[in-house]
Design a binder for these strands. Structure first.
Length: 562
RNA sequence: GCGCCCGUGGUCUAACGGAUAAGGCACGAGUCUUCUAAACUCGAAGAUGGGGGUUCGAUUCCCUCCGGGCGCGCCA
């Protein structure tokens, strides 16, 4: 018999109770069995129940019996040992060596109550002491942001959001590559555009940056300074045009990123690292460790000592530091102020991973303190036609173009939808299509649909469902399935963090929407029966909370109506 | 040549080392006098590129081959 007042028990607690009893049963039967943690996972097929454990497989060796027999014996023991399991579980069945369990409806109802109580804090993790530095998006300040930054920004921001939600102290930063020779190229290109305003025949540098974004900047200079620079010596105009162009383009990049919904803690200029002597201190650190040598007048990093293919030049024969030297300094800084450093880079940087991990080691940190996540290549399509992104031809598709065409929501969702290491085909037509082919709208529609139900419901009912829900009426399989899905949020979010797999969030959001739509068709919400109505409204509120959270982590809005 | 990523139904993708490999689109058949049909239900469709290995168990880890993409500068 159940006690008269039953305390609500959450799934994790029910499973812990089960695990403890199972552990007892195992030690009682197989004293010399290796002690392994009993883990539960959700089986792929719903027929196998809510959770399953493979504990019996680990015992086959000591027990010298088949996992099927072991599982069957353990199930019999477990229920004997812990009578409470009869209330917490509606089914405990050994199948093919697995032990499959199904939680009783009250446990799932308790999850819904729990979400209603926690509200938007549901699934948030406890404060972690680990400090994480996350760098992504970073581009040369020589042009507008393009698709690849769309992907790295979406991936990075989703990871950062999820890490923060799970309690990590995350610092997100952008490195401005303004220290190298490309700034000269920018200055010369901009200068040519400026001169062309007065003399259309003025030659454009062969290696210059094409595209239509420089002429307007040149026009600004002309508006301000008129012909002042025409007769100036190169030693004067080059620094000016380089800096002016750099500042304008970085400002533009900042605007684009903000518009995309990403907010950085730091925009680090490489030139500044250089000017403040921090490049030097990074190199000195490597040298002190004995990881550098000189050859032909250049300074090399012994990257091969740390598993890289070849040693890397740090300082050229002419004394100028390389791009990699900047990275040495920058990563040395990051490693000092964070426990873990993560770089999210584009596909052209994958040759860089070994170098950077080796660098972390050479600087005296663990190899694992630095991770590099490569976001693979993107192919842009418009329907069946591939969109050319050739920079040389001058028709670049910018991130702003994409936002203009499909909107922030669709762009953010599409860019994280696939596993980062999988090449992505981005179809602009599909992304802006408001149809059932578009997963963004499918998810948002779920949210809007719930909001719509609340508009039709009595205000007092919704309030009651939120504040004093009685959920015992939630017993329909569609209701249980939805509650079960909502309960996954903390686990899914933590998994996204642990595996650096932001795409799982988009799948989860689709799964919630799918379970909700099924529930919506199966169960009418605003019914006559009061208990049923309140319970279902409670489930709707909880669903809306979790769905909004999932969308928020991805950086997509949760509309009240569509 | 060396290195990295990818190879899953017609197509695009999923799958902490677990069970009969899961979804979307496309295709076929149904469901709106009731809370948004941008939704739902049912159906047909596959030997996870080939071969070996590790494991009680491999789409997943290791080796090798084939196919596709990318990177291999005292460029950034």
């Amino acid at each position: 018999m159940s006690p008269t007042t039953t305390e609500p028990v959450l799934p994790d607690d029910a499973l812990a109770t089960f695990a403890a009893a199972l552990q007892d049963a195992i030690t009682a039967r197989y004293a010399d069995a290796p002690r392994a943690e009993i883990a539960f996972e959700a089986p792929r097929r719903p027929e196998f129940g809510d959770f399953a454990t493979n504990a019996a497989f680990a015992l086959t060796r000591t027990a010298k019996r088949s996992p099927q027999d072991i599982a069957a014996a353990l199930v019999a023991d477990v229920v004997e040992r812990e009578p409470r399991l009869r209330d917490l579980f509606s089914d405990i069945t050994p199948t093919a060596g697995f032990i499959n369990v199904r939680l009783a409806a009250p446990v799932w109802q308790a999850v819904v109550a729990h979400i209603l109580q926690d509200g938007e804090h549901f699934g948030a993790g406890p404060q972690q002491s680990a400090r994480i530095s996350l760098e992504f998006g970073s581009a040369n300040p020589t042009g507008p942001l393009v698709v690849v930054q769309g992907r790295t920004c979406s991936v990075g921001a989703t990871l950062a959001n999820t890490m923060r939600y799970r309690g990590y102290d995350v610092f997100i930063e952008w490195i401005i590559n303004d220290a190298g020779g490309q700034l000269d190229t920018l200055g010369r290109s901009l200068y040519a555009r400026y001169r062309q305003l007065f003399d259309p025949a003025f030659p454009f540098p062969e290696e210059g940056y094409p595209g239509d974004y420089l002429p307007p900047i040149a026009q600004q200079i002309a508006d301000r300074d008129a012909q002042r620079w025409i007769d100036a010596p190169e030693s004067q105009w080059l620094p000016f045009f380089s800096k002016f162009g750099r500042d304008m383009l970085v400002a533009e990049q900042m605007r684009t990123v903000a518009r995309f919904g990403v907010h950085y803690d730091l925009w680090q200029s490489e030139k500044e690292l250089h000017d403040t002597g921090r490049i030097k201190s990074g190199l000195a650190r490597l040298k002190a460790g004995g990881h550098t040598y000189e050859q032909d007048g250049a300074v090399f990093f012994k990257a091969t000592d740390f598993g890289d293919d070849k040693d890397r030049v740090l300082v050229r024969r002419d004394g100028r530091p390389t791009y990699f030297a900047n990275d040495v300094a920058y990563h040395y800084e990051k490693l000092q102020r964070a426990d873990r450093v993560i770089d999210i880079l584009g596909p052209d940087h994958h040759g860089y991973i070994g170098r950077l991990k080796g660098l972390a080691e050479a600087l005296g940190f663990s190899r694992d303190s630095l991770d590099v996540l490569i976001a693979q290549q993107i192919t842009l399509m418009r329907g069946n036609e591939q969109v050319s992104m050739s920079k040389r031809a001058g028709h670049i598709v910018t991130l702003d173009d994409i936002i203009d065409e499909v909107g922030v929501d669709a762009a953010r969702f599409f860019f994280v939808m696939l596993s980062p290491e999988s090449p992505l085909t981005f179809d602009l037509e599909l992304a802006k299509e408001q149809s059932n082919e578009n997963p963004v709208y499918y998810v948002q529609y779920g949210h809007a649909r719930i909001a719509s139900v609340f508009k039709n419901a009595d205000f007092a009912d919704v309030e009651e469902a939120r504040m004093r829900p009685s959920l015992a009426a939630l017993t329909n399989p569609a209701e249980i399935a939805l509650a079960r899905r909502l309960a996954e949020l903390p686990r899914v979010a933590q998994n996204v963090v642990d595996q650096l797999a932001p795409h799982r969030l988009t799948r989860y959001a689709r799964d919630i929407a799918s379970d909700f739509h099924q529930f919506y068709h199966e169960c009418r919400i605003l019914v006559e029966d009061r208990d049923e109505r309140i319970a279902r409204l409670g489930l709707c509120i909880a669903t809306k909370t979790v769905l909004a959270r999932a969308l928020d982590l991805i950086g997509v809005s949760a509309p009240e109506s569509m």
